[in-house]
Design a protein around this nucleic acid. Structure first.
Lengths: 233, 233, 233, 233
DNA sequence: CATGAATGAGGATTCATTCAT
DNA sequence: TATGAATGAATCCTCATTCAT
């Protein structure tokens, strides 16, 4: 791991002796807007934690990419882990809030299911930071998610959309009667997740470029098809 | 790598073999057996890296759990990353060497495929360290796997078993003709992988205990079934 | 000069100023004065590097002799080499700033030259740390001086004083017309430098004490005489 | 200082498990000739110490560049410092043994002196390792030269050649009567030494290339001239 | 004589966190 | 709120040196 040295390596020092306030640095427009400051920190931290993991991320780096200072991070989040917790929580919330904006109620069940899968697939593909954070969190044995409130967990585990699709599918006689919604959700998640989470090792080992539009499209259909087939009679 | 091991490619599992000389302090019997020393370090490090990730793992901790000293880690592996690389490489090798000891050639294709899936499922379940290392490596964008030699990659990407099953399946007219082996392999991997990799967050969010024998058995069948259905006509 | 002022660029010499609060442990009064902290570190480091060289110097030792902690060294200088660079730069700057405070314009050229040589001789004798640092830097092939800015190098290579002396000398017909100022400067430097740089081996081998006032005075005159003779017609 | 990593950075490891005796490495022809082994070690160490200084030199590096192993270094020289001592001693001896092979007795005194200076100049130029070792030793306050035996010191301080030149010069009435041979020797040494010792910083600061044949020739004559002028009446 | 393995004591560097203003 | 300075406790890594064979 390259020992990234952020600051310039000790420049020869100007002849002037008291540079004091390094006027060259970032403007750092004093926000005075707590919410925005918080949001900004979380945004930066989300990417940082997702890229480097909990222990790999550096508070200094996060502070530097932020509109505010390191002190503010501690002011708002108490500690590195506090910040990480906020990041995880925020990420899960975002995912929830955006998901299921799809109108699937008026489509035939199997078609609705396929659409749901495709949407999930694309959504995860579009949010690698979230996927990676889930990996990071699992490396840490889900210790932080475990601290979430029951309400948070409930909302995160809300698979009512899938439930209703299955219900309609069974009612219309196009799906197996013994489908376990959680099990099906897990299969969908697994197939979509892997595509983002393990793409680096997988594409290296199997010499395939998983990022091309063609490869993505093919995989999306394969996943949708696999799921649909798994519920049909 | 030069200083390779004679025999044992660092078998992580068996806790046998440690002299455990009475007292509290480590025995530290001067081995003078480079292979064993290396293997021992890799074994310990494998677990450490899989538990804490690359940056989270501590060389000091690894050394402490080892028969040798911290210094030896550097003697054999040059750096923390060098050790990590050796761990990754060793883990992938082990997986390969043990996999496919199954005799599937004499079973009907669909049955063989189901068996192959169940085996993969169980194998990954039995080797969480490996699964977690793959996660860790992907957090690091697969940068270390990317350094492997073509031969290593070839052996890691060897899915001939699956190939021949598909071939027989098509020949016997029980499988779709348009199956892409790599795509199928990815689905199998995805479904098995998720079960180990994301079990912490998943079970917390969905309030299920994925570790019970019943849950495991059910999931194994679900996965096998999903895969088999995906290839049938 | 004694009281390390805020701006003052690390005055190496004066050992004054340390509160020395009774007991053994360091006072470590939190300065919160970056300039003083920096200057203090450079002062201590200057001596340490000049005594032990770049690789021989110990950051721990430097920190211990400092008002601050080891951490601060890295805070301000990033690395051992960064500190060394700062030391080298500061040393050269100091030399420049103090040199040539002599008024030689109103003396006869040959006398002015002799004075200039005597001053250089005494100055180098009074600043062995600087001399030794130059040795250290040359052991390292001048790699750090090579990183200085053109402006810094210009000021370091400013020998206008010598230039004007030579000019006057030639004009007045008391010096050779073909004197190369840089060549002459090198001779002066060489003769003065050796006296400090190699005194240890030289005095051991030739069984002379070069440090006595008499020996110093004699050598000073010898050097001045040698230089003056070298330019006369 | 770049953390040079000599060995290849942990290559991915061949699949073969028992390379054992890395046949690719140096042949290391078993000498069985103590003197040659010693000489070889000293030769390598001389360069290493002259390049990096006492603390900067690495026993491992020296051993690697040697025909023998690290163990031999300790066998013959006891410690790093012991080796350094041997290097210093050997270097001074070599210098002595080769110097003064010049026949100057039959030349006019001033011409003989000029020749002696030119020879010294060229000799030092041709032996930068020695020059640098002298610097290194002086950085260490000449502590190791101080341990030499009186005989060694006598031979090192033998300036009889110069003595006789001066004697003849005075007798023939072409030199000042009050020349101090040691002082003159110091001037010669200083002028020749500087040229090699400080060339890196000097040429950087004064933007001159001191290594060209023309520059070398000019400087050699300048030095010879300066010395000759310093002794004439 | 020769060699690879082993090691304790250090040595440079980093990091999350707190303080003074 | 905001910020640069400061810090203790790790943390990775290196080095001269010794041991077993």
């Amino acid at each position: 791991m390259a020992k990234a040295s952020t600051k310039a390596t000790a420049q020869p020092a100007p002849k002037v002796d008291k540079p004091k306030t390094s006027a060259t640095a970032k403007p750092k427009t004093r926000t005075n807007d707590p919410d925005r400051t918080r949001a900004n920190i979380i945004e930066v931290a989300t990417h940082e934690f997702s890229e480097k993991g909990l222990s790999g991320a550096r508070i200094d780096e996060i502070a530097e990419r932020t509109q505010t200072s390191k002190r503010m991070i501690y002011y708002y989040f108490e500690s590195k882990e506090g910040l990480y917790r906020a990041v995880i929580e925020n990420s899960y919330r975002r995912i929830r809030s955006i998901e299921a904006t799809l109108d699937l109620e008026h489509k035939p069940p199997l078609e609705a299911l396929a659409q749901h899968v495709r949407f999930t697939f694309d959504y995860q593909l579009a949010n690698p930071d979230f996927i990676r954070l889930v990996m990071v969190e699992n490396i840490h044995h889900g210790a932080h998610v475990a601290q979430f409130s029951p309400e948070q967990l409930d909302s995160m585990g809300d698979i009512s959309t899938l439930h209703s699709i299955i219900k309609r599918g069974i009612a219309e006689g196009v799906m197996r009667k013994d489908i376990d919604p959680v099990d099906l959700h897990m299969s969908i998640s697994a197939l979509c997740f892997f595509n983002v989470a393990n793409r680096h090792t997988f594409s290296t080992i199997f010499k395939v470029d998983m990022a091309t539009p063609a490869a993505t499209a093919a995989r999306r259909e394969s996943v949708a098809d696999t799921i649909v087939r798994s519920v049909t009679l």
